[in-house]
Computed example of a mutant assay.
Amino acid sequence: MTARLFISYRASDGADKATALARDLEELYGDEQIFLDKDDLGAGVPWRAEVARTLQARPILLVLVTPDYLGATDAEGRRRIDDPRDPTRIELADALAANAHIVPLMCDGVPAIPASADLPPPFDQLLERTWRRLRAYDWREDFARLVRDLDGLGLERLGAGGGAATAALAAAARRRRLVVGAAGLAVVTAGAGGWLWLRSRQRDLSGRWRVRIGARGATTARTADAMLVDVVHDGATIRFASGPVDIRNDPDWRDYRAFWRQRTGADLTHVLYRADGEVLTQSGEPIGAAVERGALLRVTAALRVLTEAGGEPIDSGSFRGTVEDDDRRIRGRLWLNSEQAERVVELRRDG
């Protein structure tokens, strides 16, 4: 399948936001429909030729207008957008030539749509399009608006229309079920001895865990305050749920609490963390009933941050970690869309 959604950005300050946007879009539309150069170009592939080929398929072009997208300069102080060799200029020119649908996204640090007199061709053509916002502090609202636009342009969601990406996922799931089912049948036919062998290798991460999330830029979470999280683990699925977490004295929440108060008139004092995901083997396959004790496991989960009142998440992200062989510690990293960055996370069984 040819990608339909292409993300164009300036690498100097747009790579993290482009990665976060691609991750969220892939959850809705599948990775086959999303093109992000750093993820979709193989080693040794001429990037300009591949990007031009993708754009010729008339996709939707999302342009991340960060401060550097239009304002970056070279070593001599000249604007990059005035250079005919500028990669973002080439991408935009190719997209216009292919009659792609272009959506400029005004990101953090860009207070207003620039004036036409400040933009050389082809960047002046961005002013002929409808602009949207994509801000870290209001990611949920801005992303939801963008998704409504993409749905209106006919981009097919996973599971919505039985497309090729959906069919491929369904086929993979069927193959997984067949493999697990065959393995289970083999164990049953082995008799009582086989059943005891199976039970001796079951893994269970359920229970209460203490979670520490490191500060921004920290390499460890050891000194962070701990919060209690209940974990429910059943086969290949895993869920995390915290109780109310007090954020009143947390400096990382100060700006958002002020924004929330201005927007709603209420004080945001506590949040809830929820995550749903999978437990995988080191090779990336969901675990079956029998996993040898001591084998390393991986956990991946989609994160939601909620208010105590519930409703739509106020933040989202993802977690990935490795389970230590005694099943009492998980070390990993947490990506928060509001921060466009990762944090170190450590989980230990409580008690």
Rank of each mutant, 00 (worst) to 15 (best):
M1K: 09
A3C: 05
A3I: 01
R4P: 07
L5I: 14
R10H: 15
A11V: 03
G14I: 01
K17S: 04
L25N: 00
E26V: 00
E27Y: 02
E27S: 12
E27I: 05
Y29H: 05
Y29W: 05
G30K: 12
E32H: 10
L36G: 13
K38Q: 14
D39C: 03
L41V: 11
G42P: 04
G42A: 15
A43I: 09
A43M: 06
G44S: 07
W47N: 10
A49D: 15
L55N: 13
L55D: 14
I60H: 13
I60C: 13
L61P: 07
L64T: 04
L64E: 00
T66D: 11
D68T: 07
T73M: 07
G77C: 08
I81F: 01
P84G: 11
P84L: 11
D86T: 04
L92A: 14
A95T: 09
A97L: 14
N99D: 15
A100H: 13
H101L: 05
I102D: 14
P104L: 05
D108Q: 06
D108F: 03
G109K: 04
P111A: 15
P114H: 10
A115S: 13
P121F: 04
Q125M: 02
L127K: 04
R133D: 14
R133M: 09
L134M: 15
R135C: 07
D138R: 13
A144R: 02
L153Y: 08
L158W: 03
G162C: 04
A165K: 03
A168K: 01
A172H: 10
R175F: 07
V179P: 02
G181S: 08
A182I: 02
L185S: 11
A186G: 03
V188M: 07
T189H: 14
T189S: 15
W197Y: 07
L198I: 01
R201D: 09
Q202G: 12
L205G: 10
R210H: 12
V211C: 10
R212E: 03
R212N: 10
R216I: 10
G217A: 13
A221S: 14
A221Q: 06
A226T: 08
V229C: 13
V229I: 13
D230I: 00
V232W: 02
T237V: 14
T237A: 15
I238D: 09
A241L: 12
S242V: 13
G243M: 13
I247S: 08
D252T: 03
R261N: 11
Q262W: 02
A266I: 00
V271H: 06
V271A: 04
R274Q: 10
D276E: 12
Q282K: 03
S283D: 14
E285R: 14
E285W: 06
I287N: 05
I287C: 09
L296P: 10
A301N: 08
L303M: 13
L303F: 03
L303A: 15
R304M: 10
E308M: 10
G310I: 09
E312R: 13
P313Y: 12
S316R: 12
G317N: 05
F319Y: 09
G321C: 02
I330M: 06
R331G: 12
R333K: 07
L334N: 01
W335P: 00
L336S: 08
A341V: 00
E342L: 06
E342V: 00
R343S: 11
V344H: 11
E346R: 06
R348W: 08
R349K: 14
G351R: 10
